[in-house]
Design a protein around this nucleic acid. Structure first.
Length: 671
DNA sequence: TGTGTCCGAGACGAA
DNA sequence: CTCGGACACA
């Protein structure tokens, strides 16, 4: 026990030792949050709590894995493997698979991922004859998700629609839901909603969980949304042994329904809760912490607190004005090249953090130009690649014959002469009769409405997939995938579509990569199933990342959102301009505070050196337009922006808030 | 029906 | 500029 607590500061220790009753741990960036959670878990175990009684909820699967690894070292493999540790989503899925019959769900329900959602929404809009320029599918998707997370039903949404746009989206919502249910799939929001329903409608299940999980811990509590809160609350409301850990200043998922008021109001939700504030930052120099504090204190609604650095002074933070994004990228690439050449940094020490998904473009070009190894985190996922989605759609259809999105997608893959017209006929007929797309397809072929050998052949192919299903049942996934590839002659399809040798190989590699995943999964999982395999791929972003993730020495290029929780010796925070950070949309949506938190997250990723830059102009839609330094930079320097700062015509932004500094203090103290 | 070209809209984040 | 959709053609 002694040993466990050794090395913890007073606050950390208090958080670990407060095991009974509700506890709020406010853990600023870099204050040893993960350490506290793992030690607290180990502490509970050492005190005799059974590992089965502990529920540990993390924000990502990666975090869950790492947590478990750490615990293995502290309490042994056995115990670490017995505790329940995962994201809300994976926890809920497990629950739903176990209790599927209570909710009238098939056991092997499929998962509708983001891109399937988009397909489904576009389909719904088309059925409703709503042109996409009237309702942007993307906007519809996010609104629908918002409805779902606030437990608004389609009918309610229709009733309460305030204008035409909302009405259109609400109808789209209804169609979308019908589509999901018909396809027997759940989207990400559904996991939570169905789990919530399970707990409300089946008291015995709720009691069973409450009985089992006597100690519950939630990490990244600031990112918890309504349904997640409901689920958690249902489990702990009896014993109230709940420990939530988070930082309201790092709440950056409001757009995804995360509800920052939950962490702000924790003490109201759980009267008598203990509160521990971890305020000592072990990650960054004083300059960096100081900058972070100065920015974040401009947010009105937050737990009052500020960070102190345990590291002492370091170097000052340059704020650099660049001509445009190309200049910014080449400047930074040059600097990185020099730093590494002279030995002050390794590539792996360095991260370039961006706000938006298109910013990396310029950097990729320059980094490549300088032969600097880099890895781009986020961006187009492996699973957005056409060939990968093709195969996956087939696999989903094999696992879940009702999956309409997948069925419609593969109907003409490889191209077999089943075009838009045919599909439209099928969809219309299917909607009218309320039958599934494939039965409808078969019926239309049989009664001659759709003719042709192509259609007949496809019916046959579709039926032979049932055979594949049988293999899959036996758990031989590699065999299933291989057979599938043969059956649909996918290799020749790839050869046909990509005449260029290089792309062809690239594409085929994507296909082979799925085989690798399957092989891996099959080897690691005790009871491999196709459904489980697809679930693992869809749910766990980090599983898909190339294995080179860890140790190879390269510069990290990523968005601020994916940087949360990480740290780097040297960080370049780029494109810090009005309209980018804060993002243009935040003004109309009233989310500038969240943008500020994003800035705060970015600044606090840096351990020793932080360099901030903004551009005087930037190419937008192929045209160069002037930009202005972000208000956050003024806040950081405690200056007021000049009156003409954003004035329309004042082309090149007025004063760079400040330039590099000359007075450099003893760089010694930071070890 | 598949393929190619033109056109207009766009623009953040991800389990 | 860069994508996806619409449209025209073979």
């Amino acid at each position: 026990m002694k040993k466990l607590l050794g090395g913890l500061n007073e606050d950390q220790r208090r958080a670990v030792e407060t095991t009974e009753g509700p506890l709020l741990v406010l853990a600023g960036a870099g204050t040893g949050k993960t350490r506290v959670i793992t030690v607290r878990t180990a502490y509970l175990l050492n005190a005799g709590v059974s590992p089965e009684s502990i529920l540990l909820v993390t924000f990502t699967n990666k975090a869950a894995r790492e947590m478990r690894e750490r615990l293995k070292k502290m309490v042994g493999k056995k115990k670490a493997e017995q505790l329940t540790c995962g994201t809300f989503h994976s926890f809920c899925i497990r629950l739903l698979r176990e209790h599927h019959e209570k909710l009238d769900l098939p056991e092997a329900f499929g998962i509708c991922d983001g891109s399937d959602q988009m397909t489904a929404i576009k389909g719904a809009l088309r059925e409703l004859r709503i042109p996409e320029q009237q309702v942007n599918p993307r906007a519809a998707q996010s609104r629908i998700s918002l409805y779902k997370n606030s437990c608004v039903s389609p009918d309610q949404a229709i009733d309460e629609a305030a204008d035409d746009w909302e009405l259109a989206v609400a109808h789209c919502f209804r169609k979308y839901e019908e589509h999901l249910r018909r396809s027997r799939v759940l989207d990400f929001d559904d996991f939570l909603l169905f789990a919530m329903r399970l707990l409300t409608e089946h008291e015995e299940v709720r009691e069973q969980l409450e009985e089992r999980y006597k100690y519950v811990m939630i990490d990244e509590y600031q990112d918890t949304n309504g349904p997640q809160y409901g689920i958690m609350h249902a489990i702990v409301r009896g014993h109230r042994n709940l420990c939530v850990v988070g930082d309201d200043d790092q709440s950056i998922y409001g757009w995804r329904g995360a509800d920052i008021s939950k962490i702000l109001g924790f003490e109201k939700d759980f009267p008598g809760a203990d509160k521990v504030h971890l305020g000592i930052n072990y990650r960054s120099t004083e300059e960096i912490i100081d900058a972070a504090n100065k920015v974040i204190r401009n947010n009105p609604k937050r737990h009052e607190k500020s960070l102190r650095s345990a590291l002492g002074t370091g170097s000052s933070i340059p704020i650099l004005r660049m001509d445009d994004e190309t200049h910014e990228a080449s400047y930074i690439a040059t600097e990185i090249e020099a730093l590494v050449r002279e030995g002050s940094n390794r590539y792996g020490d360095i991260a370039i953090l961006v706000r938006t998904a298109q910013q990396p473009r310029a950097f990729e070009a320059e980094l490549r130009g300088f032969d600097i190894p880099y890895k781009l985190v986020g961006g187009m996922s492996f699973f957005d690649r056409k060939e990968v989605r093709d195969i996956l759609s087939y696999l989903r259809l094999i696992a879940n014959p009702a999956d309409e999105t997948s069925f419609l997608r593969i109907a003409n893959i490889p191209a077999r002469g089943i075009g838009k017209t045919t599909i439209d006929k099928v969809v219309t007929a299917a909607t009218e009769t309320g039958t599934g797309a494939f039965p409808t397809f078969r019926r239309l072929v049989e009664d001659g409405t759709i003719g042709g050998a192509a259609a007949k052949g496809f019916v046959k192919l579709r039926e032979s997939l049932n055979v594949a299903h049988a293999y899959a049942q036996q758990g031989d996934l590699v065999f299933t995938v291989t057979e599938l590839l043969n059956l649909i002659e996918y290799r020749s399809e790839v050869d046909r579509i990509y005449p260029d040798d290089q792309t062809r190989e690239l594409r085929w590699n994507g296909v082979m990569e799925i085989l690798n995943f399957a092989e891996n999964y099959q080897r690691k999982d005790k009871k491999p199933t196709l459904t489980g395999f697809l679930e693992a791929l869809t749910l766990d972003e980090s599983d898909r990342k190339d294995k080179d993730d860890g140790d190879n020495d390269s510069v990290t290029l990523m968005t601020l959102h994916s940087a949360k929780g990480l740290e780097f010796r040297r960080v370049y925070l780029v494109g810090v301009e009005e309209g980018i950070m804060p993002h243009i949309r935040s003004a109309t949506e009233g989310t500038v505070d969240e943008e500020r938190r994003l800035m705060y997250v970015g600044v606090t990723r840096a351990q020793h050196e932080l360099s901030i830059s903004y551009c005087a102009a930037r190419a937008k839609f192929g045209k160069l337009v002037p930009c202005h330094p972000s208000r956050f930079l003024f806040e950081m320097k405690e200056k007021t922006p000049p009156d003409d700062w954003m004035a329309a015509g004042s082309t090149p932004p007025p004063p760079p808030p400040v330039r590099k500094k000359a007075k450099r203090r003893a760089r010694r103290r930071r070890m």
